[in-house]
Design a protein around this nucleic acid. Structure first.
Lengths: 198, 198
DNA sequence: TTAGTAAGTAAACGTTTGTTTACTATTAAA
DNA sequence: TTTAATAGTAAACAAACGTTTACTTACTAA
């Protein structure tokens, strides 16, 4: 049996992500994707059932998976609250900083009816990702270290501004005076921690 | 001269928004839009140059415009810091609560290459929206009421969690126990204000 | 009352869409 | 060296795409 060519599989994924991020999902077609990857359209259908299947697997495996891995690098749920939150903040910002594609796809995931549908069908909920962070937060509530908000609310308060800050970084990237310096980022993190601690 | 039928114009806009929010931008076609609005495709081209023009005007006028109006209702830039921030929080949440479509389109706007391109071409920047809020924030920095972050950073810290909280509200809407109660929302607002005040 | 004009329609334009058919290439196992 | 099976290709399919052409309708100003 002829073995799969994993280089082709990788090409399909990376080129698809590039087109979505740079030209928008509405401009991703199977034929365009095949052409840019130098393969026949049929080859995509060997690896994915159809376009919807491709998009969903792309998002769950590549976007969410890589994001989670980058964010949790070096994070231990036994860290103290300040240390843990700061670690996640720096990891997240570092990841998006060198990876604008992921930022765009992440935002896209929040609004896409297709992906929301897929998540419901597969019974995937947000708690399945970042489980160590959730346990970390729960422990710190029990400890009495932080205010007792529902997990989803804590996640919003602690990490939602990060996506906007990453975007702010891109907006001003070409300008002479960088706005999101390490100091600003660190001060932001402090401000948020301050408001959430008991 | 035969006058424009404004009901048709309104139908085009509201149906287009519905399709984008419920089925995704990739499923909005001019023919589908015309069919659902009970008009000829040609009629859309009387009111908009092409599909891109329709999408951009739709987003700037309907989505951003209505959002700004709802958020600023009853807000005065002379309010004191806590009062002003709380007003915006409650307005925003109330708006998204009864208007999930806008939430989805708002998120879409953040990721869409098409809209980002349009903003650059037209020299629209975020400062053009919510000017009263920006002046309000600047005054409170000068006052020494709050920490001296760049405006874009303050905006992220103060208002970014709101979008996620609105989504959290939807996620749990059908469940017996509501998570985002008025009390939780108010406590969140307090926590953020606490971290930002000097 | 009528002439002029923009609004609107029905139907079609050439392209591109997602996907499939019919075929060839490449490899592991027998 | 042959066999069986999957990977991959080139070309095509009907359907849908954005947009336009040719025409009709409805109203205003003269």
């Amino acid at each position: 049996m002829r073995p799969k060519d994993f280089e082709k599989e990788e090409a399909i994924r990376s080129i698809a992500l590039r087109i979505i991020a740079e030209e928008g999902l509405e401009n991703l077609s199977m034929q365009k994707l095949a052409k840019e990857a130098n393969i026949s359209p049929r080859t995509i259908y060997i690896k994915y059932e159809n376009k919807e299947d491709l998009l969903i697997k792309l998002f769950i495996d590549e976007v969410l998976g890589n994001y989670e891995k980058a964010v949790l690098e070096g994070f231990e749920e036994t860290m103290n609250f300040e240390e843990g939150v700061r670690k996640i903040w720096l990891n997240t910002f570092k990841y998006f900083k060198s990876n604008r594609q992921s930022y765009i796809l992440m935002q896209y995931g929040k609004s896409s009816p297709l992906l929301n549908k897929a998540f419901k069908e597969r019974n995937i909920n947000e708690g399945d990702f970042f489980a160590p962070v959730h346990r970390f937060l729960k422990r710190n509530i029990k400890n009495g270290t932080i205010k007792s908000f529902p997990i989803g609310v804590l996640r919003a308060l602690l990490f939602a501004p990060l996506l906007d800050l990453s975007n702010e970084y891109f907006e001003y990237k070409e300008r002479p005076k960088q706005i999101i310096t390490e100091k600003v980022l660190s001060d932001c993190c402090d401000a948020i921690i301050e408001g959430i601690k008991l």
